[in-house]
Amino acid sequence: MTTIAETGGDTAAGAPLVQVQDLEMYFPIYKGVLRRQVGSVRAVDGLSFDIRRGETLGLVGESGCGKSTCGRALLRLYEVTGGRITFEGRDIAELAGNALRDMRPRMQMIFQDPQACLNPRMTVGSIISEPLDEHHVATGEEKRQRVRELLEAVGMNPEFANRYPHEFSGGQRQRIGIARALALAPDFIVCDEPIAALDVSIQAQVVNLLQDLQEKLGLTYLFISHDLSMIRHIADRVAVMYLGKIVELAPVEELFNAPKHPYTKALLSAVPVPDPAVEAKRERIILTGDVPNPANPPAGCRFCTRCPDAIDRCSVEEPVWRNLGPAKGSNGTVEDHFVACHRVE
């Protein structure tokens, strides 16, 4: 296994680490006593994007729009319905045997439901060190030391290693999941709502940690979050999903300052502000209309049933994914701004 220091460096920075083409993930729907398949939930329906080495790509969108499904598919936790995912240019669907085993520790996930992946019968120490055992990375005193460091890194008392998950609060359990994902020092981490259950101070601590690791080791993140102020802080580029599709993708400041897609605009208008005076007189774009069913998405643009700007054409013709041209990216780079909407010039 090559370390990031060897493959990283300035030359490789900015090159795509993960490439996704036409990714589709459908879940079958069964009905009746015979459990016949009557349709499918099109959770992810044709996604194409790159994640550059060393960048943080933010992924935002409505609850149920397919963000977790996308993240899990990237790590090959599902057999995808269609499309291609490459990691360092290699198609991950074709990896098998040793190649797959070598790849696994390099890609990790911080799960949205930490409780669901913490074995209640294992101590916190063994939960965190399990990946170290599986990949024969460290043993004995070295392993114990590593567990202590990881616990400290996520702001927890290292003495807690002997306790069981149920003895912890929600936010403490979320941090155990983060420590576990970091154990193998992976290159790429899908962070699925990694800070949702944490108070602001610990959120800050965890986000600072993720950023420090990125700076030191060149880590790459797909950062799924509904916390838009945190996305603005941590992401380099942001992809906005709606009902199984990406509708807009732009450098972070461009997206927040000059959003183009009507869904992105509605989303940004709803961010709660920690000031009761501001909250009392704010104007949100409230989305009306039925939330469509991903098993039976509307024709044309998927947002047309709720879009404040919709015209007749929107319910007939699907808008194409267009490049609006270069915009200012982070660190003085220039990045493209993509959108799929008929009303954007």
């Binding site: 702001g155 008392n157 101070s201 800050a204 600072n208 802080h233």
Partner: peptide, 22 residues
């Protein structure tokens, strides 16, 4: 706690503030 809030009008600060100590 209120001091640790990230500025809601821009993600300019490079590091978020947290409360020191355990």
């Amino acid at each position: 706690l209120l001091h640790t809030l990230p500025g809601h009008d821009g993600g300019e600060a490079s590091r978020l503030r947290s409360i020191g100590g355990q």
